[in-house]
Lab assay of single mutants.
Amino acid sequence: GSKLPPGWEKRMSRSSGRVYYFNHITNASQWERPSG
């Protein structure tokens, strides 16, 4: 298991139950796992 880039964390969408990734530094969110 590799770590996520700085700022990123795994989140669960309440509406759909899907996992997404959220960056608390930039407030960005995306479905794809961030690389870096």
Rank of each mutant, 00 (worst) to 15 (best):
N27Q: 13
R18P: 01
S16F: 08
G1P: 11
G1D: 13
I25T: 08
R14Q: 14
R33K: 10
L4R: 03
G1T: 11
Q30W: 04
K10Y: 07
Y21A: 00
R33D: 08
N23G: 00
W8Q: 00
Y20Q: 01
W31N: 07
S29G: 05
T26I: 04
N23R: 01
A28S: 12
M12L: 15
W8R: 00
S15Q: 11
V19H: 09
N27D: 04
L4M: 08
K10S: 07
S35I: 11
N27G: 15
G7Y: 06
P5N: 03
Q30L: 04
P34Q: 01
G36R: 10
R18L: 08
P5F: 03
V19K: 04
G36V: 12
A28H: 14
S29A: 13
P6G: 07
E9G: 05
N23E: 01
P5I: 02
S35P: 10
K10V: 12
Y20N: 00
L4E: 05
E32L: 08
A28T: 14
A28V: 15
S29Y: 14
I25S: 06
R14F: 13
R11F: 07
G7V: 03
L4A: 02
M12F: 15
G7A: 05
S2G: 12
V19Q: 06
Q30A: 03
E9F: 04
Q30V: 05
N27K: 15
S15K: 15
G1F: 09
R18N: 05
H24I: 14
G36L: 12
K3I: 12
K10T: 09
K10L: 13
I25Q: 09
M12N: 09
E9C: 06
K10W: 07
M12A: 09
N23Q: 02
W31D: 06
N27E: 07
N27S: 09
S35K: 10
S29D: 02
Y21N: 00
W31Q: 05
R18K: 10
P6D: 10
S16Q: 10
R18G: 04
Y20E: 03
E32A: 10
N27Y: 12
S35M: 12
N27M: 13
P6S: 08
R18A: 05
G17N: 09
G7L: 02
N27R: 14
P34K: 01
S35T: 13
N27W: 08
G36T: 12
V19W: 11
G17W: 03
H24T: 15
Y21F: 06
S15E: 14
G7N: 07
E32G: 08
S13D: 15
P5G: 06
Q30T: 07
R18V: 06
R18D: 04
H24Y: 14
R14G: 14
S29K: 13
Y20F: 09
S29Q: 09
G36A: 13
S16T: 13
V19Y: 10
K3E: 14
G7M: 05
E32S: 13
F22R: 03
P5W: 03
E32D: 11
G7S: 04
M12G: 04
M12T: 15
L4H: 02
N23P: 00
L4I: 04
E9D: 03
E9A: 05
T26L: 06
M12W: 15
G1E: 14
F22V: 05
R33V: 12
R14H: 15
S16L: 08
H24N: 11
S15F: 13
S2H: 10
A28G: 06
W31G: 03
W8E: 00
S15M: 08
T26V: 03
R14E: 15
G7T: 02
P6A: 09
P34I: 01
R11C: 14
W31M: 05
P34A: 02
P34T: 01
M12S: 09
H24E: 06
P5T: 02
E32P: 07
S2A: 12
N27I: 04
G17M: 05
T26F: 05
H24S: 10
N23A: 01
W8M: 01
W31S: 06
G17I: 02
G36P: 11
E32W: 10
S16Y: 09
S16A: 07
E32T: 09
T26E: 05
R11S: 03
T26M: 04
T26S: 08
F22Y: 14
Y20G: 02
K3F: 11
W8T: 00
P6M: 08
R18S: 05
S13V: 12
H24F: 13
E32M: 09
H24P: 08
S15R: 15
P5V: 02
G36C: 15
R11T: 03
K3Y: 11
G17Y: 05
W31H: 05
G7R: 03
G36E: 13
S16N: 12
R33G: 03
K10R: 13
S16W: 08
S2T: 12
R14D: 13
S16G: 08
G17H: 07
I25M: 10
W8Y: 02
G17D: 06
E9W: 04
Y20T: 00
H24D: 04
P6W: 10
V19E: 09
